[in-house]
Nucleic acid binder design. Structure first.
Lengths: 146, 146
DNA sequence: CTACAACTATTGCAAACGCAACAATTGCCA
DNA sequence: TGGCAATTGTTGCGTTTGCAATAGTTGTAG
């Protein structure tokens, strides 16, 4: 007879809860709807802005979005003028997605809001505690990615 | 000119990443498909198993699942025989969702796997570090709740 | 060099989602 | 008490999702 799970002390539950709160808060604070963006589009733009142009499969890996969804999502971002999609030079089965000036301008508006979100989430935590939290999360992730 | 976001050191990104890894790992390890469950159904059953019978709106709050989705999700769980849905006695606009013996039996199989998931995620972390991680996540959540 | 496996992206399709509208009930305050 | 706002759940509807199948390309073993 397994003991019941105490959810309020169960790691996956705690993470899911905070994750949703972060999404909700950011979506509202950044007023993503106004820009015609979803949270997933934001993630793709953030990845492109941070790591430069990438293949769809790489974006998929970074954001945990399915490749078929990514294909359609990039199409929408192209339609919005935030990214370009072009055939790779080194391999014509790949495409390369890159952020446009318009996409970059959007990020200039959103990044400060994203930073503010992190501050809100970590209010009452010392800088050291926030760093510890990040470090622990990074170590947890590694436990799945070997 | 805002500085670019360093994703690998950005809290929401780290949480999203670990969250997805947890879902993926658990779905596979528990072979949810075999039981006809989705991860959201698991969450609902876990909430019921942990906190006892609840209204749909409460389950919705606990799991971050939209109320309309919850309505249909409970219907599916009823069809599977894992929960019952009945009108509340104190308020006839509310329904009360409760887990059934069959649902409980399912949980007996899944809970050990859930515990194992937590161990996998926290491999290489001391018990104290895991406790710290949970505590920090709980504090972060509170920053959004009030 | 050839054949076959792996990789990358796209599309078809059924299922699931979320918002908005609605119905039914309850709470509240004036 | 009467009426109006809030709560709870369900359904309609258009959109989105993820899996599977497909096409096209590249890598590789023999």
């Amino acid at each position: 007879m397994a003991q019941p799970l105490d959810l309020s002390n169960y790691l996956p539950y705690l993470i899911n809860r905070v994750g949703f709160a972060l999404v909700e808060n950011f979506t509202a604070a950044a007023d993503l709807k106004k820009s015609g963006l979803t949270i997933d589009m934001w993630r793709v733009l953030a990845a492109l802005s941070n790591r430069g142009e990438q293949r769809q499969v790489d974006l998929s890996g970074m954001t945990s979005i399915d490749v078929s969804t990514m294909s359609r999502l990039v199409s929408r971002l192209v339609r919005l003028g935030c990214v370009t999609r072009s055939r790779s030079e080194k391999s014509s089965r790949e495409v390369v997605v890159a952020i446009t000036p318009k996409g970059r301008a959007l990020m200039q508006r959103l990044i400060p809001i994203a930073r503010e979100l992190e501050r809100t989430a970590s209010a009452g935590l010392s800088a050291k505690e926030l760093a510890v939290a990040k470090s622990l999360l990074a170590r947890m992730y590694k436990n799945f990615a070997p």
